[in-house]
């Protein structure tokens, strides 16, 4: 009998709680990029342990998914902060404004390198971005010459560049939903694509076609979509010494005994090189704050202060232990100032 009365009691009580908490949320809600997630979570944990505020809740939704949720409106049911592994797009900014999210604060937190790595049992690759483009693009310039495109005919690395080994082209990388993939396409593929003069000339005439050539990755099995789980790519590389993998620098940093990063355009993916900006495939990481929520949701200003302090994102801050590449000092100061002033982003 008691059990029977308990069940509706629980249901009733939980519904009551439900209506109560819609009105007030006492923790920060963060969504966004899976690349920023490992860094934001460390800050959130530190913030929760050292302040009187609750630990922020962080969902890993991807940059695009995060901005969609973030721009859905103002109010406690919408997230306060979104992480992004790329800058907010103009269309997303417009969407935010349409839904009443008029004031956004942009904070850049640092850089992330993208490594092209293979197993330590194999020899280390020395690649140029052009090699990467030729090996991985769906359509490449006809190897016989002339300004025309053909379906990618290259089967081995040696076909692409005579200096490379004769092993089959086999690259494990993230799927199209991933920010890492976007960044790889933009920085590595387009970076190599630009080296071909007649394609570069196309950029001014027909930007759409140019992007389609430079960003489209081949689908004939040479590029294998290995899911969002970077650990899995590392394991697969270990099992298959002929394959290369594409993933974030923090995973390379944690697995230096198993995999080695290829040297891209003469620069190895190392902390110092990425920080200096000489390593070509690195991208900035951001987060965006909804200004209307500051002061309404407890702790946002303090969270920003924690994130932008030197002990967090500085040259020797605890985020560097997790693989974040810090910004130069002047840039850090600039964004720390923006965080204090809650400077409104204008696009």
């Amino acid at each position: 009998m008691t059990k029977k009365s308990l069940i509706p009691a629980i249901a009733g009580a939980s519904l009551l709680c439900a209506s109560g908490s819609i009105l007030a949320r006492d923790y920060i809600s963060i969504v966004g990029s899976s690349t920023v997630y490992p860094f934001a979570t460390v800050v959130a944990e530190q913030f929760g342990k050292t302040t009187k505020f609750k630990t922020p809740k962080i969902e890993s939704t991807g940059s695009g998914g995060g901005l969609k949720l973030f721009c859905a409106g103002v109010g406690t049911e919408h997230p306060d902060i979104t992480n992004a592994s790329r800058r907010i797009k103009k269309s997303e900014y417009g969407r935010c404004h349409k839904n009443g999210v008029n004031e956004i604060v942009e904070i850049k937190i640092g850089y992330d390198g993208i490594a092209v790595a293979n197993s330590k049992q194999a020899i280390r690759f020395k690649l140029s971005r052009k090699d990467l483009f030729l090996a991985l693009a769906k359509q490449v310039p006809d190897p016989k010459g002339g300004e025309k495109l053909v379906e990618n005919p290259y089967k081995t690395w040696k076909d692409v560049n005579a200096k490379l080994p004769a092993s089959r082209i086999e690259v494990l990388g993230p799927p199209p939903t991933s920010g890492t993939r976007d960044a790889f396409a933009e920085l590595a593929m387009e970076g190599g694509c630009k080296k071909i003069d007649w394609i570069k000339a196309m950029k001014k005439r027909d930007k759409k076609a140019y992007n389609a050539i430079c960003h489209t990755i081949r689908e004939d099995g040479a590029y294998i979509e290995a899911g969002e789980n970077d650990n899995l790519i590392v394991q697969k590389l270990e099992a298959n010494p002929n394959a290369l993998g594409i993933f974030g620098f923090s995973f390379l940093d944690q697995n230096t005994d198993k995999v080695q990063g290829a040297i891209i355009d003469g620069v190895a993916p190392e902390f110092e090189a990425i920080a200096k900006g000489t390593y070509p495939i690195s991208r900035p990481l951001f987060f965006y704050v909804k200004k209307a929520h500051v002061g309404k949701i407890p702790g946002i200003a303090e969270y920003l202060a924690e994130f932008t302090s030197e002990k967090t994102w500085g040259d020797e801050g605890y985020l560097t232990d997790k693989g974040l590449i810090p910004m130069p000092r002047a840039e850090r100061q600039q964004f720390a100032k923006d965080a204090v002033e809650l400077k409104n982003l204008k696009l």
Binding site: A40, T55, I58, E59, S60
Partner: peptide, 9 residues
């Protein structure tokens, strides 16, 4: 429904 999240508390 957002239960895939980093939650410490």
């Amino acid at each position: 429904i957002g239960m895939v999240a980093f939650i410490v508390d």
